[in-house]
Design a protein around this nucleic acid. Sequence first.
DNA 1: ATAGGGTTAG
Length: 650
Amino acid sequence: MKSISRLKKCVGAASMDSPPPLLLLHLLRPYSLNVIELGNGPERDPSTLINDFTRFCYQRDLPRAMTALHSMQNHKIWADSITYSELIKCCLARGAIEQGKVVHKHIFSDGYQPKTFLLNVLLNMYVKFNLLNEAQMLFVQMPQRNFVSWTTMIAAFSDADLNDKALEFLILMLREGARPNMFTYSSVLRACAGLPNLRQLHCGIIRTGLDSDVFVRSALIDNYSKWGELQNALCVFNEMVTADLVVWNSIIGGFAQNSDGDEALNLFIRMKRAGFLADQSTLTSALRACTGLALLELGRQLHVHVLKFHQDLILNNALLDMYCKCGSLEDANSVFSRMVDKDVISWSTMIIGMAQNGFSQQALKLFEAMKVSGTRPNYITVLGVLFACSHAGLVDNGQYYFRSMKKLFGIDPGREHYGCMVDLLGRAGKLDEAVQLIHEMEYEPDAVTWRTLLGACRVHRNMDLAVYAAKQILKLDPSDAGTYILLSNIYANSQRWEDVAEVRRTMRGRRVKKEPGCSWIEVNKQIHAFILGDYSHPQIDEISRELNQLIWRLKEMGYVPDTNFVLQDLEGEQKEDSLLYHSEKLAIVFGMMNLSLEKTIRIRKNLRICGDCHVFAKLLAKMECRSIVIRDPIRYHHFRDGVCSCGDYW
DNA sequence: ATAGGGTTAG
């Protein structure tokens, strides 16, 4: 009966200010009945005060609620925990830090003993305001802590990348006898900074049976993926019964980020069959998979779905990158120009895309436009700019940007920037300056640095330096097949067969296997792979016939196979034969046979294109009036009308 | 009642 009269008072008080009808419904909810813990208010009716306060809290009327709070403080009366938690929510939503602190003071004033629940809410407020010190102080002062208090702190440390603290708190929590739940584990997993920790946590999770929780599962999958343990990620994914969208997204993203686009796309298809609708995260990962595999047609299909999430920045960035990496700058440009929001990643993606596709001058122009737009370049942007310079031989521009990057953009040159400069100088034939830079830089040269120099030596046929660089690489990375091949190639070019044999022996001794050249082409939604020495493609006979005819016609135009690119010490026609079956040639011919004339033939390669295939593609593009794009692991070649976008500089 | 998960450029 008491509560009913209080309720009437509440409603009465509310209707005096004539609130909208919905508010009345709010007030009828049970918590307005919990007006308890009254102090000895002097003259004013304390329940009216609390009613006002409660109403303002639920109305999200922060200024009035704070005024009411002051009056309550003066009268030494307190509301119930839930009302305070509503007020704190309101402070959080408005970013009202000072008001939050006033509430904090109030609920500790005059001996009032707030419940653990309320202190957890307050703790969370400090965490969300990023006031970790305040949160920690409160945590220490709390008379009692429960598993929510611990979890709140652990999540806070994980978010702040204070991984050791997060793990430490898990241990302290266990010691104090508080039991972690799925919230705790999903939070602590984000802080897990190594495989051994991850395995330990996973064991603990299995013991408690919490591995069926979708939050825990997605965190586990995500974590295993982060350490490249895709098999374990897949185990977590497959083991259980049901997955939600985020669990699917975790596993798809895991494969996409670990350059296994095939598996990512397989899972993407399975997800759709299972009845889930792709969201931004799914599409971003699927696009990334297309980017890695250079699947332009599939990427275009995904573009249609991207439109549903118009102006999602991350998704648009992924789309942009997909078009760049699939060699379609027209599409990339059109996406880029339509993007309302562009961040440093959008600009960097486009700059790098232009540079990789052979449009370095445009890339530099875009960089200028970026600066005008007010977006600050970062480490990667500058890398892209230097990359653009090195791929077009723009030595002066490159040196200018490199020397002034600290002053202009506040970015210290990192190892990779030096790498770009070694590339720039080396390719431009300034091998001595490149070597000098390697010695000058404050980083110990790594295998990548030496590989860059080796590439330049190959272009400029500096054998002695090449041998030196190759030996440095193999010291640092004895399993680098490409370097052995290159080294034996260099020896073969100078007819040093003894040295060739020695390199081969070393390779065999160290069980280093040469990666076979492989080219992929997408035709009618199917991916066709051509691997050197593998003739299992169903149309291989027709392709070979066609290839032979084309070469015969090309030779009449003056094509001379460049046998420098043959690895074995073979003679005459045998040499030409092994060149003939380079995978990109087969893929190009297959594309010509299966794609209509106006369609660009797009090939992706796992190894860098050889000089002979490069000449072949240029001449073929002219003779057959076709446009051919080949993407190798480093850059792109657009062949049209007898020339390549790389300007033969690669 | 209060605490937890997935997506973009080298």
